[in-house]
Design a protein around this nucleic acid. Structure first.
Lengths: 218, 218
DNA sequence: CCTCCTGAATTTGCATACAAACAGTAAAAA
DNA sequence: TTTTTACTGTTTGTATGCAAATTCAGGAGG
């Protein structure tokens, strides 16, 4: 019985969950652009589920802010205007600041090392000028910091906002200067985490997000 | 055509929305206690809707954190343990601090006066020792502050967390000392808002929530 | 007395059926 | 020509039906 924990149970996930995840991925990846009409008949055919679980997925994604329900007229992928994007990032900044402070106190050395590893992988992509790869690890680091705050509610709240923001693809128009600065800031954040400097990390994370917003709005 | 704006349109709200709101109210009000099993047949009879919109409501409330879905075994009102309560309040504290800072810059004098009015109504209930009435206006004030931050995402995020927390009824065991202190803190918060003192309000709101949590955990 | 089985009754998950709302088109009226 | 109306196909909202999963009562075996 040595490998009991490795045997994944044969779970039959509810179809509405599966549909929700699939749709959310499609939206976050941008394969379903903002404003796209979500035709039920079409999607039932593509996903291979009936309308009931699909419509349940719509409702879930609507409360997550991913889609918008137009009564009697179906659902569309929720548009993400600059105002809402800015608002969302402001909230995420406040959450990250809290998360960083908590992580300073809560995170184990092993967890910090995990973040450091991600940091170096990110540096590699930065060195190569690979924006997509950089972005992926950048995301991963921020998510880890929030996760290692140890506050589950914080993590879930952050993750939801993050999903909504990712599809905006705002990183696309990132200047070389801002990119380099962001990488430097990440270095400082990591150092502050390692030093368990609560006040410093709070400021750094707030500023990091604020800088992102500033460069975005310009 | 003078009163065009007063004529409320004949809206036929979708049943799933109606069901969601009704259920949410029942849960927040505590009429459906945490852990209560939500029997579909029973609720369809009580709400007068069929299973489809009811089940859609379950999904929505589940993503809001109000109910928990047990696959193949129905839904229960999500339990609210002290850990999760504390975590939620911590997040709300960070959000309020941000909201207060934004409100300092954004809120109009008229909006501040609205908050002041609520404050005095709250003081009246405090003077009478009416905890329920006090609590109601206390909630209203905090919500207004977040609302007048002008950040819609912030407001929605806060409101959702707040709904989840309200049903914990933690204010029930509030010491006279803590109550008085909370009222004093509210006075300071209002003063800082009026003075547009961003840094002060940030500290005050963070502390206010932290004090609430501290008294709660004791 | 407790544990384990078995089958009926209940309950959920999903698919489908039906009715209401909407959208588009073409003819009739202005 | 423009507007209105009537009609028709499409899409959504809700109810219901069926199969699978779960629960529970009762009895056999330990």
């Amino acid at each position: 019985m040595a490998e009991t924990q490795d045997i994944s149970p044969i779970t039959r996930r509810p179809l509405h969950e599966e549909a929700t995840d699939r749709l959310r991925d499609l939206i976050v990846q941008g394969r379903l652009a903002a404003g796209t009409r979500l035709n039920e008949r079409l999607l039932t055919a593509q996903l291979g589920v009936s309308r009931t679980p699909l419509r349940e997925a719509f409702k879930v994604l609507a409360t997550e802010g991913m889609v918008e329900l137009l009564p009697n007229r179906g659902a569309i992928v929720a548009p993400m205007d600059p105002v809402r994007l800015g608002e969302t990032l402001a909230v995420m900044g406040a959450l990250e600041a809290l998360a960083g402070a908590l992580a300073c106190a809560q995170a184990t050395e092993a967890q910090l090392n995990e973040i450091r590893a991600l940091h170096y992988e990110m540096l590699a992509y930065h060195a190569r000028g690979d924006l997509a790869g950089y972005f992926k690890f950048n995301q991963a680091i921020h998510l880890k910091i929030v996760k290692y705050s140890g506050n589950t509610v914080l993590f879930n709240t952050y993750r939801q906002l993050n999903g909504n923001v990712r599809r905006a693809r705002y990183m696309a128009n990132l200047s070389k200067e801002r990119w380099d600065a962001a990488v430097r800031e990440h270095g400082e954040i990591l150092a502050a985490l390692g030093a368990r400097d609560v006040e410093k990390i709070r400021v750094l994370l707030s500023d990091h997000l604020a800088n992102k917003v500033a460069s975005l709005l310009s």
